[in-house]
């Protein structure tokens, strides 16, 4: 993986899939909002993949970063200015700073603190957003944010075609960036830290700063995902901090497979589509079917969960001459 140079097949497949995705809101306008939401959630799953799959940090309350991005972008649009891209940047920056702050506790704490820190943070933020309802709207959610036109030209339509295209474009760029980083020499040191921090330090890799980087980067992407949800739906509710949010994104990553760039995105798409399909048939039993699906993956397709690329690649690693 690290030393492969020949990626044309991968580029072709990804390019094709994104072309289809970009076409969807225009071919099936009734599905545009669904596409927008799925793209945002896929970005959220990508961010968790970076933290969990590439840096090996378990983040049980990853919604903390997502929610902070959502509220930051929402409040920015409502109180400061309606430009979407500036709002997105604000959401990213706030979440990244929070990720950096969290990484300090992560570097000091034991494994258990690592797991708990974001979980505690998401609970805390949930209560704060609830309490300060004068600013956040509390349990009623943050309303009345008017989005300006994208790039000063494209108005956010109610049907969701422009929002969907916007969310897809952000997801696509984020995916390119992540792919770029994880395959770089820096990304290689991240893998080393994930696989064996003791050895990584013993070959001169600054483990603490690598973990902090991965955490802040992951948090920034989660913040971007939250900002996208806020902007494309024009609404932020307390639910962005909920445990369900954190749990769902973990499930998505399990479905798609952690530790490869497309795992989070594919898992999110599968999760969302399944949700849509099952909810259309038997809305009240969605969690039952989801549970069954996960069991099936766990029991039948362990290989697929642990080494998802094995399905797409021949066993021997391609190597450079």
């Amino acid at each position: 993986m690290l030393l492969a140079t020949d990626r044309w097949r991968e580029r072709l497949i990804v390019g094709f899939l994104f072309a289809v995705a970009f076409g969807l809101p225009w071919l099936m306008p009734s599905r545009a909002l669904f596409v927008a939401e799925t793209a945002s959630v896929a970005l959220f799953a990508l961010s968790l993949d970076l933290v969990l799959g590439y840096a090996g940090i378990v983040s049980l309350g990853h919604a903390a970063f997502f929610g902070v991005g959502a509220y930051a972008a929402g409040l920015f649009a409502k109180l400061v200015m309606p430009d979407p891209l500036t709002g997105l940047a604000v959401g990213i920056a706030v979440a990244a700073l929070m990720g950096l702050a969290c990484s300090l506790t992560i570097l000091r704490g034991s494994d258990l603190t690592r797991i708990m820190v974001t979980l505690a943070l998401s609970l805390l933020l949930y209560e704060l957003a609830n309490r300060f309802d004068a600013i956040t709207g509390g349990a009623d959610g943050l309303q009345g944010m008017a989005m300006g036109p994208l790039l000063g030209r494209f108005e956010f339509d109610l049907q969701g075609q422009v929002p969907a295209t916007y969310a897809l474009a952000v997801l696509f760029l984020a995916l390119l960036l992540v792919q770029w980083v994880v395959r770089s020499p820096l990304g290689a040191t991240l893998l080393a830290v994930r696989d064996n921090p003791l050895r990584a330090a013993a070959v001169g890799i600054p483990v603490a700063s690598r973990l902090a980087f991965a955490y802040a980067f992951g948090a920034a992407l989660a913040g971007a995902a939250g900002a996208l949800v806020a902007q494309t739906s024009g609404f932020v509710s307390l639910e962005v901090f909920s445990i369900e949010r954190s749990a769902d994104v973990l499930l998505m990553l399990v479905i798609g497979g952690a530790g490869w760039v497309y795992g989070g995105v594919l898992g999110a798409v599968a999760f969302k589509v399944l949700n849509e399909l099952v909810a259309g048939i038997t809305p009240q039993y969605w969690t039952f079917w989801m549970g069954l699906f996960l069991l099936a993956i766990g029991l039948l397709g362990r290989e697929r969960v642990l080494r998802p690329w094995a399905l797409w690649q021949r066993p021997s690693t391609k190597a450079v001459r």
């Binding site: 690290l2 770029w180 980083v181 770089s184 020499p185 820096l186 290689a188």
Partner: peptide
């Protein structure tokens, strides 16, 4: 080790 682009 800190270069975030390119490939080894």
């Amino acid at each position: 080790g800190r270069r975030w682009w390119g490939s080894l």
